[in-house]
Design a protein around this nucleic acid. Structure first.
Lengths: 107, 107
DNA sequence: TTGTCACATATAGATCATCGATATATATTG
DNA sequence: CAATATATATCGATGATCTATATGTGACAA
């Protein structure tokens, strides 16, 4: 799973949100580093829906504008947990190896 | 950066290795989950070379077979460290949110 | 009232990394 | 002589993301 999809699932793990809200949330989660484009978001949403990792929650009209909310499914939560663990393991492996390699010349 | 490229950099962070060795190392790092195909490996190597994240180290002939070794450059190490930190932050955010959401019904 | 911006969803085409299959070549084993 | 493991390499297809564009509302300024 790639970064944008992972962050969309992470955003929805905090509770149901609508598309544009997810974009703002992802920017917050990633410390401003990841700014989802509309095209990326809606294409990913379609895919995550068809995989059953997210589901439509409800629709609201706010100031005359439609807001379509999505929520994480049980499968989505399980998948997100598995991906997070995988990422954590890989990141730790990289840091450990960089640390050992970096000590080579300093000893 | 995607998973295969990240894991190739991680493998080389332990010291110079040749292509086929990287495949075996990546399988070890990922606990058997990621098996790089030759096509993925050599395409990624070409790209990482052109981006200056890795460099050719040396060539050896072992049992009549060529082994081309690659090593991580300074840029590559910096990039790997940045990616690892990013992954760690994202993974932590996901876990934190899953934990909060998961407590909702259990309390 | 006209233009511009922010919000909000949506689609199409292009790009890029990965995947799957295939090719080449050598040494080893049967 | 055929099959397998090592080792590098290329090609076409797939899939996810990116860029650009489109539609429509509300707010605000000129």
């Amino acid at each position: 799973m790639q970064e944008p999809s992972f962050l969309i699932l992470t955003a929805l793990a905090a509770g149901p949100q609508h598309g544009y809200g997810v974009i703002a949330d992802v920017e917050r989660i990633s410390d401003g580093q990841v700014r989802l484009r509309a095209g990326t978001l809606y294409a990913a949403i379609d895919r995550l829906l068809s995989e059953g990792l997210i589901a439509e929650d409800r629709e609201e009209i706010v100031d005359g504008r439609l807001r379509r909310y999505y929520r994480l499914t049980g499968d989505g939560a399980a998948r997100l947990a598995a991906e997070a663990e995988r990422m954590h393991r890989h990141a730790s492996a990289a840091v450990a190896r960089l640390r050992v390699a970096g000590q080579g010349g300093a000893a």
